Simulated scan of single mutants.
Amino acid sequence: MRQLDAPQQARVRRDLIERTVPAGAFVCRKGEPIEHWFGVIDGLVKISSVSADGKSVTFIGVPPGGWYGEGSLLKAEPRRYDAVALRDSRIALMPRATFQWLLDSSIPFNRHLLIQLNERLGQLIATLESDRLLGPDARVARCLAQMFNPLLYPELGPRLEISQAELGFLTGLSRQRVNQALQLLSRRGLLNVEYGSITVLSLDALRGFEE
């Protein structure tokens, strides 16, 4: 929110609500009325949906610094997905009234939303391509590249705290298969794997990785 002027920042700080969500718990649920815009202060959140017959699909993972839910707020419709904390997470909730006030009063905020919506569309296209055309190694690479998007998550930096099990939840792969993919990407010089974290060495190479 650095692009906001001082009075706008003051109101946002006053209106924001902070919530701690334990690992495995819902941040918000499909079908709920939309009352807030959600930001991840710390932790990791999975955005997904489960059909009536139990089939699930994961759309994105949201690391620290990311916001989500603006589309549902703009359309004023019930939420169309679940958001689940993959690890203990601190979540910021911006009330609908504050979100709408910024829309009406801040050109920089509107510009930020346009960029965010455009990047989300790109993520959706990349996810469809990954799921339908690419193998597991490329799926892991593209999933990581999405979470290191500098426009959506400008404060993240090159290192992300994420376990192989959490990456498996986001890609729909087993932890063992994720480990194989990470070792391959590490040998190619695209990233470094540490216990509980990954450091990206070449974001462009991750984005374009194909098997």
Rank of each mutant, 00 (worst) to 15 (best):
S72A: 12
T98G: 05
L16N: 02
R87T: 11
D88S: 09
L124I: 13
D137Q: 05
A83S: 07
P95F: 09
D88Y: 03
L86D: 06
M94H: 05
L124V: 12
F99P: 09
S105I: 07
D15F: 05
R139G: 07
K75T: 09
H112E: 15
H112W: 15
P78N: 06
F38D: 00
A23N: 01
I91Y: 08
L114T: 14
P64R: 07
F99T: 12
V12F: 07
D42I: 00
T98F: 10
R14H: 11
A97T: 13
L134N: 03
D53R: 01
L113C: 12
F26T: 00
A138F: 07
R87C: 11
M94D: 04
A52T: 09
G65Q: 07
P63D: 05
F59R: 05
V21D: 03
R90T: 14
P63C: 04
G65K: 05
K55N: 09
A92R: 12
E119F: 03
V62K: 02
L113Y: 14
S49V: 14
L103Q: 13
D53L: 04
T98W: 10
S49F: 06
G31V: 01
R132S: 10
S56W: 02
D82S: 06
P136Y: 11
L134A: 07
S49Y: 05
T20A: 10
D15P: 04
A85K: 09
P64H: 07
L114A: 15
L93A: 07
R142G: 02
P78W: 06
N110C: 15
R120F: 12
I91V: 15
A97E: 15
L103C: 14
R90K: 15
Y68V: 11
A141M: 10
A92N: 08
F38G: 00
T20R: 12
W101C: 10
D42C: 02
L86I: 08
L121R: 11
A76V: 02
E129Q: 11
Y81R: 08
